[in-house]
């Protein structure tokens, strides 16, 4: 099985900075930047969709790119 890759988009105006996505990302792609989340380590994304699924604020979209 080839490794999946993902491209993350954070919709900043929706993000309320709860940090759920940061905590539950298995590859530490995301980090808090003051009160919103930022994509700190984009290459690590494996498109597992956990952040998109768990974001309560409709603020994260993940596209599978590989």
């Amino acid at each position: 099985m080839s490794k999946a890759k993902g491209k993350l988009e954070v919709i900043e105006k929706y993000c309320k900075g709860c940090s759920i996505c940061v905590e539950f990302c298995p590859t530490k792609v995301l980090a808090m930047d003051a009160f919103t989340v930022k994509v700190a380590n984009p290459d690590a994304c494996i498109a597992c969709m956990q952040c998109e699924l768990r974001c309560p604020d409709f603020a994260i979209k993940v596209e599978k790119i590989a």
């Binding site: 105006k13 309320k16 900075g17 974001c55 309560p56 604020d57």
Partner: peptide, 17 residues
Amino acid sequence: KLPHIWCPGCGHGIIMK
């Protein structure tokens, strides 16, 4: 209509999804 009114970390948004 977004962002919704719920507080940071409130699970209501997860349930709505």
